[in-house]
Amino acid sequence: MSERPSLTALARTFNQIALASFGGGLSAWSREILVVKKQWMEDGEFLSAVTMCRILPGANQINLAVFVGVKFRGIPGALAAVFGLTLVPVLIVLALAYFYFQFHQVPAVAGILKGAAAAAVALTLSMVFKTGKKCLVGLVPLLLFLAVFLMNGIFRWPLLACLSLLAPLALAWAWPKKLKP
Protein backbone atom coordinates (compact mmCIF):
# COMPACT_ATOMS: atom_id res chain seq x y z
CA MET A 1 0.00 0.00 0.00
CA SER A 2 1.21 3.51 -0.78
CA GLU A 3 0.38 6.54 1.39
CA ARG A 4 -2.73 6.98 3.48
CA PRO A 5 -5.25 8.59 1.11
CA SER A 6 -6.59 12.05 2.03
CA LEU A 7 -10.27 12.76 2.67
CA THR A 8 -10.60 14.34 -0.77
CA ALA A 9 -8.94 11.32 -2.37
CA LEU A 10 -11.40 9.01 -0.57
CA ALA A 11 -14.41 11.04 -1.71
CA ARG A 12 -13.12 11.34 -5.28
CA THR A 13 -12.31 7.64 -5.55
CA PHE A 14 -15.71 6.49 -4.30
CA ASN A 15 -17.40 8.99 -6.59
CA GLN A 16 -15.46 7.43 -9.45
CA ILE A 17 -16.65 3.95 -8.40
CA ALA A 18 -20.26 5.12 -8.21
CA LEU A 19 -20.26 6.77 -11.63
CA ALA A 20 -18.47 3.89 -13.33
CA SER A 21 -21.17 1.46 -12.17
CA PHE A 22 -23.79 2.63 -14.66
CA GLY A 23 -25.73 -0.57 -15.42
CA GLY A 24 -24.53 -2.39 -12.31
CA GLY A 25 -21.42 -4.23 -11.16
CA LEU A 26 -20.50 -2.05 -8.18
CA SER A 27 -18.48 -4.82 -6.46
CA ALA A 28 -16.40 -5.42 -9.56
CA TRP A 29 -15.84 -1.70 -10.00
CA SER A 30 -14.82 -1.38 -6.35
CA ARG A 31 -12.16 -4.03 -6.82
CA GLU A 32 -11.05 -2.58 -10.16
CA ILE A 33 -10.46 0.82 -8.56
CA LEU A 34 -9.52 0.07 -4.91
CA VAL A 35 -7.32 -3.00 -5.47
CA VAL A 36 -6.05 -2.78 -9.06
CA LYS A 37 -5.81 0.92 -9.79
CA LYS A 38 -5.23 2.61 -6.42
CA GLN A 39 -3.70 -0.42 -4.66
CA TRP A 40 -5.18 0.69 -1.36
CA MET A 41 -5.77 -2.88 -0.27
CA GLU A 42 -4.87 -6.41 -1.36
CA ASP A 43 -7.30 -8.97 -2.74
CA GLY A 44 -7.42 -10.95 0.53
CA GLU A 45 -8.37 -7.96 2.63
CA PHE A 46 -10.77 -6.65 -0.01
CA LEU A 47 -12.63 -9.96 -0.37
CA SER A 48 -13.07 -10.46 3.37
CA ALA A 49 -14.25 -6.84 3.69
CA VAL A 50 -16.80 -7.45 0.93
CA THR A 51 -18.21 -10.49 2.72
CA MET A 52 -18.31 -8.76 6.09
CA CYS A 53 -20.14 -5.85 4.50
CA ARG A 54 -22.63 -8.32 3.06
CA ILE A 55 -23.26 -10.07 6.36
CA LEU A 56 -23.78 -6.83 8.28
CA PRO A 57 -27.08 -5.04 7.76
CA GLY A 58 -27.15 -2.17 5.30
CA ALA A 59 -26.45 -1.63 1.62
CA ASN A 60 -23.28 -3.58 0.79
CA GLN A 61 -21.57 -0.82 -1.14
CA ILE A 62 -22.26 1.86 1.45
CA ASN A 63 -20.94 -0.49 4.11
CA LEU A 64 -17.78 -1.02 2.05
CA ALA A 65 -17.31 2.75 1.76
CA VAL A 66 -17.62 3.05 5.55
CA PHE A 67 -15.18 0.18 6.05
CA VAL A 68 -12.53 1.58 3.69
CA GLY A 69 -13.02 5.13 4.94
CA VAL A 70 -12.59 4.10 8.60
CA LYS A 71 -9.52 2.03 7.73
CA PHE A 72 -7.65 5.07 6.41
CA ARG A 73 -9.14 8.10 8.15
CA GLY A 74 -11.53 7.05 10.93
CA ILE A 75 -15.00 8.58 11.09
CA PRO A 76 -14.17 11.58 8.84
CA GLY A 77 -12.84 9.07 6.31
CA ALA A 78 -16.08 7.07 6.44
CA LEU A 79 -18.13 10.23 5.93
CA ALA A 80 -15.93 11.32 3.02
CA ALA A 81 -16.18 7.91 1.31
CA VAL A 82 -19.97 7.65 1.76
CA PHE A 83 -20.40 11.25 0.62
CA GLY A 84 -18.32 10.55 -2.47
CA LEU A 85 -20.22 7.37 -3.22
CA THR A 86 -23.69 8.86 -2.85
CA LEU A 87 -23.67 12.61 -3.63
CA VAL A 88 -23.79 12.52 -7.42
CA PRO A 89 -25.98 9.36 -7.59
CA VAL A 90 -28.48 10.98 -5.16
CA LEU A 91 -28.65 14.05 -7.41
CA ILE A 92 -29.13 11.86 -10.48
CA VAL A 93 -31.81 9.76 -8.77
CA LEU A 94 -33.57 12.93 -7.56
CA ALA A 95 -33.64 14.26 -11.12
CA LEU A 96 -34.99 10.92 -12.35
CA ALA A 97 -37.61 10.88 -9.58
CA TYR A 98 -38.73 14.40 -10.51
CA PHE A 99 -38.95 13.41 -14.17
CA TYR A 100 -40.73 10.14 -13.43
CA PHE A 101 -43.37 11.48 -11.05
CA GLN A 102 -43.94 14.56 -13.25
CA PHE A 103 -44.27 12.78 -16.59
CA HIS A 104 -45.08 9.21 -15.46
CA GLN A 105 -42.46 7.74 -17.75
CA VAL A 106 -39.23 5.89 -17.26
CA PRO A 107 -36.58 7.82 -19.19
CA ALA A 108 -36.01 6.04 -22.50
CA VAL A 109 -32.63 4.51 -21.86
CA ALA A 110 -33.68 0.86 -21.79
CA GLY A 111 -31.47 -0.15 -24.76
CA ILE A 112 -28.34 1.51 -23.40
CA LEU A 113 -28.97 -0.14 -20.03
CA LYS A 114 -29.30 -3.57 -21.63
CA GLY A 115 -25.88 -3.20 -23.20
CA ALA A 116 -24.28 -1.71 -20.10
CA ALA A 117 -25.79 -4.47 -17.96
CA ALA A 118 -24.33 -7.15 -20.25
CA ALA A 119 -20.90 -5.57 -19.79
CA ALA A 120 -21.43 -5.18 -16.03
CA VAL A 121 -22.15 -8.92 -15.78
CA ALA A 122 -18.94 -9.49 -17.74
CA LEU A 123 -16.91 -7.28 -15.40
CA THR A 124 -18.32 -9.21 -12.44
CA LEU A 125 -17.44 -12.53 -14.12
CA SER A 126 -13.90 -11.35 -14.85
CA MET A 127 -13.58 -10.47 -11.17
CA VAL A 128 -14.52 -14.08 -10.37
CA PHE A 129 -11.74 -15.34 -12.67
CA LYS A 130 -9.11 -12.90 -11.45
CA THR A 131 -9.71 -13.37 -7.72
CA GLY A 132 -10.53 -17.06 -8.12
CA LYS A 133 -7.14 -17.76 -9.69
CA LYS A 134 -5.48 -16.69 -6.44
CA CYS A 135 -7.72 -18.25 -3.81
CA LEU A 136 -9.35 -21.27 -5.46
CA VAL A 137 -6.27 -23.45 -5.21
CA GLY A 138 -6.96 -26.89 -3.78
CA LEU A 139 -10.05 -29.02 -3.33
CA VAL A 140 -11.54 -27.46 -0.19
CA PRO A 141 -11.73 -23.85 -1.44
CA LEU A 142 -13.09 -25.06 -4.78
CA LEU A 143 -15.84 -27.03 -3.02
CA LEU A 144 -16.69 -24.05 -0.78
CA PHE A 145 -16.88 -21.83 -3.86
CA LEU A 146 -19.17 -24.21 -5.75
CA ALA A 147 -21.39 -24.88 -2.71
CA VAL A 148 -22.05 -21.21 -1.99
CA PHE A 149 -22.70 -20.47 -5.68
CA LEU A 150 -25.26 -23.29 -5.90
CA MET A 151 -26.99 -22.39 -2.63
CA ASN A 152 -27.12 -18.61 -3.08
CA GLY A 153 -27.17 -18.27 -6.87
CA ILE A 154 -29.10 -21.26 -8.20
CA PHE A 155 -31.31 -22.21 -5.24
CA ARG A 156 -31.59 -18.60 -3.98
CA TRP A 157 -31.15 -19.49 -0.33
CA PRO A 158 -30.85 -16.41 1.88
CA LEU A 159 -27.25 -15.33 2.50
CA LEU A 160 -27.46 -16.05 6.22
CA ALA A 161 -28.60 -19.63 5.65
CA CYS A 162 -25.72 -20.28 3.22
CA LEU A 163 -23.12 -18.75 5.48
CA SER A 164 -24.28 -20.34 8.70
CA LEU A 165 -23.68 -23.69 6.97
CA LEU A 166 -20.48 -22.91 5.09
CA ALA A 167 -18.68 -20.25 7.15
CA PRO A 168 -17.83 -22.64 10.04
CA LEU A 169 -16.38 -25.13 7.52
CA ALA A 170 -14.41 -22.36 5.82
CA LEU A 171 -13.04 -21.08 9.13
CA ALA A 172 -12.12 -24.56 10.34
CA TRP A 173 -10.23 -25.13 7.09
CA ALA A 174 -8.46 -21.78 7.15
CA TRP A 175 -7.59 -21.55 10.85
CA PRO A 176 -3.80 -21.16 11.20
CA LYS A 177 -2.37 -24.56 12.02
CA LYS A 178 0.84 -23.43 13.67
CA LEU A 179 1.01 -23.36 17.45
CA LYS A 180 0.64 -19.89 18.86
CA PRO A 181 3.82 -18.40 20.32
Binding site: S48, N152, A174
Partner: peptide, 20 residues
Amino acid sequence: IEKGFAPLTVGLILASAWIM
Protein backbone atom coordinates in the same frame (compact mmCIF):
# COMPACT_ATOMS: atom_id res chain seq x y z
CA ILE B 1 -11.57 -15.15 8.04
CA GLU B 2 -9.42 -13.58 5.32
CA LYS B 3 -8.30 -16.94 3.99
CA GLY B 4 -11.52 -18.92 4.55
CA PHE B 5 -13.99 -16.30 3.36
CA ALA B 6 -12.15 -15.64 0.10
CA PRO B 7 -13.53 -18.71 -1.75
CA LEU B 8 -17.00 -18.00 -0.30
CA THR B 9 -16.89 -14.38 -1.48
CA VAL B 10 -15.83 -15.39 -4.98
CA GLY B 11 -18.74 -17.88 -5.04
CA LEU B 12 -21.17 -15.19 -3.88
CA ILE B 13 -19.89 -12.81 -6.56
CA LEU B 14 -20.43 -15.48 -9.21
CA ALA B 15 -23.94 -15.92 -7.76
CA SER B 16 -24.60 -12.20 -8.08
CA ALA B 17 -23.36 -12.21 -11.71
CA TRP B 18 -25.78 -15.08 -12.34
CA ILE B 19 -28.68 -13.24 -10.66
CA MET B 20 -27.88 -9.97 -12.51
